[in-house]
Amino acid sequence: MSQVNHAARNARYAAVFAGLVAALVVLTVWNINTGSEHIPVVDIVRIILFREGDATQLGIVWKLRLPRIIASALLGGGLALSGFLMQTFFGNPIAGPFVLGISSGSKLFVALTMIAALRFVSFVSSWMMVAAAFVGALIAMGFVLLAARSIRQMSMLLVAGIMISYICSAVTEFLITFAKDSDIVNLHSWSQGSFSGTKWDDVRFFAILILVCFAVVFCLSKPIGAYQMGEAYAQSMGVNVKRFRVLLILMSSLIAGCVTAFAGPISFVGIAVPHLIKMLLKTAKPILVIPASFLGGGVFCLFCDLIARTAFAPTELSISTVTALFGAPVVIAMLVRRHGGRA
């Protein structure tokens, strides 16, 4: 590779990462700053760094806005990561936890667990939710994989995923409608996808889980890079393909399940973000795409959550409404471009 090109590439990578970090900071501040209560930037710094200032504002920032921001950033990053892993696994750029029905599978199991838990043990812990979501994600993934076995065509696989998603959503709605418990009313907003109402206990739980998952996935950059070349080549490079495939499934389901457990199903982040990141970086090298997608997913969800909160305040939009609004056109553009390129 020529030196000039090499330098230009590195400059591009650095610019993308710098841009993402800057966007993350700006959006964080903006998110704290806007809402029913407007808090000036100077006060924000004081509130966050020294925990001092107006008591109401202190409460709003620390109890409401900050956990929600961390949730948006980390869970959004997780979604992008999970999407990237599924795209790698299926060798298809429009695979993702939402379209394949993985999120809906998680949603169904979380709803079931919540209803059962509230009836019999009267409390729901974070780990129960995540465990249920993980199991739901794996079961949905199992169905998708079964479909993938008999259906060779990728487009049909997505149709199968969407059907699974509809079935799970229908069952979930059914459960919610007939569960009379007042606590379950919350289930409705959650089942539409939302970052609101995140508690610090949850934040601690998913922050550890998501960050550990991110670290694991980042360490998988090398085999993922090999896998992008196709299974046969990956194996010839020394990757134990069978074990690696299982690992991909487990990691992507765990992350997708975790996100769903805390924020409900969120559409299109998993597809749109990795795609945008690849376009920006102009490379598909996992060692760059993985951290950039993680950051990008956070930025994207912070941005969408800001709109969800403020666009029609005091009414909140569901986060999926906003992510779909911005994510779906990206996916359509990607499809058009690919088919244009092939024809």
Partner: peptide, 30 residues
């Protein structure tokens, strides 16, 4: 190996593709 199957590799330069051959020898992050 050089196989008949098509490489899916998107957004990879030829350099990147050739460099994947170093896989067995590079460190954990490749």
């Amino acid at each position: 190996v050089v196989l008949t199957e098509r490489i899916k590799g998107e957004l990879l330069t030829c350099w990147d593709v050739v460099a994947t051959g170093r896989y067995p020898y590079t460190n954990t992050l490749g």
